[in-house]
């Protein structure tokens, strides 16, 4: 009797400690990666980093100004395409799609699209836009990122719209508003912070994506804002510099990683804070 009891107690202690250890081990990589990025990257960050072009192969100095601007442009194109599309699809999922056969199917496909490897999305947009226009372009990169962002926005919009109490929607309908006005003028504003959270999460998700840009936006060593031309981006630049042979490139890559990670973590924390304060 006693020994069984002791054995159970012991097993309990052991297993609970293992679970605790697992939780601690799980956060070690984040700390390790963040520490290295900060330590190695801080030295590369200065005004030049944001204002200068990369210096020629192997030379010291220079910056990643074109990649910073390029990333912003790519994210802007993607958001401009994916936000209205995703919000509309999200409204469908939350309202008209209820009780139909199409609704659950679109929801499933949206989740599945969310899980498609991003490199495959890159191949897809390569065939769709790069082959047909004959050139890599910022637009192609933005479309690829938009495809990745779309399901995130659609599903968060659906959830945000479902969170709006049905009494609010009914009050609007009972006033004699047609459903579309009730949705756009009353339901969507009420769901605003939820939708905004989705957009921020979507931006966070795509701003660090590299694989879908390799065959779409490609890269560019010079300043460019032209959406029909190849464009530089921080993630692709990190990849190219990290796998290149020069010490100065490696330092720049760490600097870019610091900028990118700060941006992405800040966006994620903002989204969390927004969804909490609701």
């Amino acid at each position: 009797m006693i020994s069984t009891y002791r054995r159970r107690k012991l097993a309990n202690m052991l297993m609970l400690s293992l679970l605790g250890a697992a939780a601690l081990v799980a956060v070690v990589p984040l700390i390790a990666v963040a520490a290295y990025v900060v330590l190695e990257g801080a030295g590369a960050i200065n005004l030049d980093f944001f204002t200068q072009l990369p210096s020629p192969a192997g030379e010291a100095g220079g910056g990643m100004g074109n990649a910073v601007v390029g990333t912003l442009e790519l994210v802007a194109i993607a958001s401009a395409l994916a936000t209205p599309t995703g919000v509309m699809a999200g409204i469908y999922l939350a309202q008209q799609g209820r009780g139909t056969r199409l609704g659950p199917l679109v929801r499933l496909l949206s989740d599945v699209l969310n899980g498609v490897p991003t490199i495959v999305v890159g191949l897809f947009v390569y065939g769709l836009l790069v082959l047909t226009t004959g050139s890599f372009s910022a637009l192609a990169g933005g479309v690829a990122l938009g495809v990745i962002m779309l399901p995130v926005i659609a599903r968060t919009t659906e959830e945000a719209v479902l969170q709006v109490p049905s009494s609010v929607r009914e009050a609007a309908l009972a006033l004699g508003l047609p459903e579309w006005r009730a949705t756009l003028r009353v339901v969507l504003p009420t769901a605003r912070s939820g939708i905004l959270t989705g957009v921020i999460l979507g931006v966070a998700r795509i701003s660090g994506e590299t694989a879908p840009l390799l065959f779409t936006a490609f890269g560019n060593s010079f300043w460019s804002l032209d959406p029909t031309k190849p464009i530089a981006s921080l993630p692709v630049q990190i990849y190219n510099f990290a796998t290149g042979p020069y010490e100065s490139w490696h330092r720049q890559a760490w600097g870019a990683a610091l900028v990118l990670m700060t941006m992405v973590l800040a966006l994620n924390l903002a989204a969390r804070w927004l969804s909490r304060s609701r």
């Binding site: 984040l30 390790a32 990666v33 290295y36 990025v37 966070a204 701003s207 660090g208 994506e209 590299t210 694989a211 993630p235 990190i238 990849y239 990290a242 890559a253 760490w254 990683a257 990118l260 990670m261 992405v264 973590l265 966006l267 994620n268």
Partner: peptide, 10 residues
């Protein structure tokens, strides 16, 4: 949230 290219760099 950490971009995969940053994991790669690390």
């Amino acid at each position: 949230a950490v971009p995969s290219v940053v994991y790669g760099l690390w």
